[in-house]
């Protein structure tokens, strides 16, 4: 059962340089109770996808969103603003990268959590406060009765991210979108937060869309992983499959470029490089957008845009050679 179904989602920005196709015909679904990771570098469109789902993109004439985002029977793309506000923070919540700027410095932590509760639920002040303390306890903030009345500046980065998570969970959403939730945090704190998210997801039976640039954190966090490149999905599969047998040359390149533990005493090998850089999104090549950097690229890659191919069951790769090369 899918909690959220994204179909042919595209986001275009008109800029001085030309039309930027930030997200280009992206389709995927998030199943009940699962974590789906979207992995990509800067400019891959992963964050714009999340913002488009939440309808948080700047509403200028220069932004165009098309496609469908189905939450149950409802398409969020065409939803009225008032309706959307009822969905946001209630059925779908979001946690952002920067815990330092996501909290209002002038409001007590408790007030900020309660605000979300009372916007969506008709409860008394006493109830919402009790719920705020409960939530702080749930995200394992020590001494929640005291913390609830403190201001954000008294908290460390990791603690603030916990508060952000508490706020996101206030109305027990069906889906939590976490956009680089640990990128601004240290490794030891990152481990704490990832573990917390995993536990909460299980106890609350919630789905999670985890957006990250870091392939190494998806391993023990996400059931399935999408890899995005230059606004398009290039590969989708169970996380274990992707890490063990990447089917798309880009995914293979990404994994190869990560430093691996070396055998003691052996001299270090060169890392596998992906040559070049991501092409500018306003001037994508006609064929496969990865062709320029791909060792496997052929004439057909430069002229024809590859379609998604089913490599094996439940596993897609958008590459002309994916089926031939996989396994």
């Amino acid at each position: 059962m899918a909690v959220l179904k994204v179909e042919d989602l595209s986001v275009q920005f008109r800029t001085a340089q030309g039309v930027v196709r930030a997200v280009d015909r992206v389709s995927f679904e998030i199943r009940a109770g699962e974590t789906l990771a979207v992995v990509g570098e800067s400019g891959s469109g992963k964050s714009v996808t999340a913002l488009a789902i939440m309808r948080l993109l700047p509403r200028h004439g220069s932004t165009r969103v098309s496609g469908r985002v189905m939450l149950g029977e409802r398409d969020l793309v065409g939803l009225a603003d008032a309706e959307m506000q009822r969905v946001r923070g209630n059925q779908i919540s979001m946690v952002f990268q920067e815990p330092m700027t996501s909290l209002n410095p002038l409001m007590r932590i408790g007030e900020q959590i309660e605000e979300g509760i009372r916007r969506h639920q008709n409860v008394s002040a006493a109830v919402s406060r009790r719920r705020a303390v409960e939530l702080l306890d749930q995200v394992r903030i020590a001494d929640p009765h005291r913390r609830v009345d403190e201001f954000p500046h008294t908290l460390s980065g990791g603690m603030r991210q916990r508060v952000m998570i508490a706020m996101a969970l206030a109305c027990e959403p069906k889906l939590l979108i976490a956009d680089e939730p640990t990128t601004a945090l240290d490794v030891t704190v990152q481990a704490q937060i990832l573990e917390l998210l995993a536990t909460l997801r299980k106890t609350m039976n919630m789905s999670m869309l985890l957006i990250t640039h870091d392939l190494s954190i998806v391993a023990d966090t996400a059931e399935r992983t999408l890899v995005m490149y230059a606004g398009r999905i290039v590969e989708a599969a169970a996380t274990g499959e992707i890490l063990a047998r990447p089917a798309h040359p880009y995914t293979r390149g990404l994994l190869g470029s990560l430093p691996k533990p070396r055998a003691a005493g052996r001299s270090r090998d060169r890392l596998t490089e992906i040559p070049g850089a991501v092409p500018p999104l306003h001037a994508l090549p006609a064929g496969c957008s990865f062709a320029e950097r791909c060792q496997r690229a052929d004439a057909v890659c430069r002229t024809d845009r590859p379609e998604a191919r089913t490599v094996t069951h439940d596993r897609l790769a958008v590459c002309h050679f994916a089926v031939a090369e996989a396994i």
Partner: peptide, 25 residues
């Protein structure tokens, strides 16, 4: 050791429970 445990590894060591460091700096 805590630092090593916390840093994500590829491939994930199956079933290995991380010893997560508590508290803040």
């Amino acid at each position: 050791r805590a630092l090593f445990d916390a840093s994500p590894k590829l491939p994930a060591a199956a079933g290995q429970k991380r010893a997560v460091l508590e508290g803040d700096l």
